[in-house]
């Protein structure tokens, strides 16, 4: 049996093949670099009573183990997810790669200041409204080197990065270096950005236990 194809059919098949090839072996380079803004600050309690610090869902801490974790992030980015975007919306397959590179998030503004204010009297010498930034030391989980803490002045150098891998956020931990005599504490933590904007979050009221 002989199959005859006319000229129009042959051209249609050729064009279809070319489109298919283009679609399968797409030349589109996915973009893994994103710009983002710090527009959200969250504070969580930490439990530093043991060897290693852990998240603390309760509102109690030991009076010499007051600790918080502060996270600065881009709320919109986190809500939208961080799937790599293509430069152009070409209807093709994503090129296969041996390993997907990690997304890099570049902050539009860097962090210029950190301020911690107590909203409760911590002791007769530290009334409510005092700036207690100097009573805290810090640790940056992904970036700190060594076992010990860093002072809050060094913290800015540590957390300001050209980019943040993985997600548009940075977290750091704050540890009070005093044994507080008050029965409860409450702090406001304010971060100032290079565009003069400020992000402020309050810790919850933390009831203090005295270690025996």
């Amino acid at each position: 049996m002989r199959i005859s194809t006319d000229r129009t059919t042959r051209i249609t098949v050729l064009i279809s093949l070319a489109f298919l090839l283009k679609a399968v072996s797409s030349c589109i380079q996915p973009v893994f670099d994103f710009d983002f803004d710090f527009n959200k600050i969250t504070v969580t309690n930490l439990d530093n009573s043991d060897v290693y610090v852990m998240r603390n869902d309760r509102d109690t801490m030991y009076s010499s183990a007051i600790a918080f974790e502060v996270t600065l992030s881009d709320e919109e980015f986190l809500a939208a997810g961080s799937l790599p975007k293509a430069e152009t919306a070409f209807p093709g397959f994503t090129p296969a790669t041996a390993m997907s590179p990690e997304s890099l998030y570049h902050p539009r503004h860097h962090i210029t200041a950190l301020r911690i204010v107590t909203l409760e009297e911590m002791s007769p010498a530290i009334p409510a409204g005092s700036d207690v930034t100097g009573l805290f030391v810090a640790y940056v989980p992904r970036y700190s080197e060594g076992f010990l803490y860093i002072i809050t002045d060094e913290l800015l150098t540590m957390i300001n990065r050209d980019f943040y891998p993985g997600e548009p956020s940075v977290s750091f931990q704050l540890f009070c270096n005093q044994d507080i005599t008050a029965s409860r504490v409450l702090f406001a933590i304010t971060v100032t950005l290079s565009d003069e904007s400020m992000l402020t979050a309050q810790t919850g009221i933390v009831n203090l236990l005295r270690a025996r």
Binding site: S49, V51, Y62, G146, Y149, N177, A211
Partner: peptide, 13 residues
């Protein structure tokens, strides 16, 4: 040797 206070933030190396 790295040390940490029990129930406290104090660390020493």
């Amino acid at each position: 040797v790295t040390q940490k206070m029990i129930n406290g933030n104090f660390k020493r190396e």
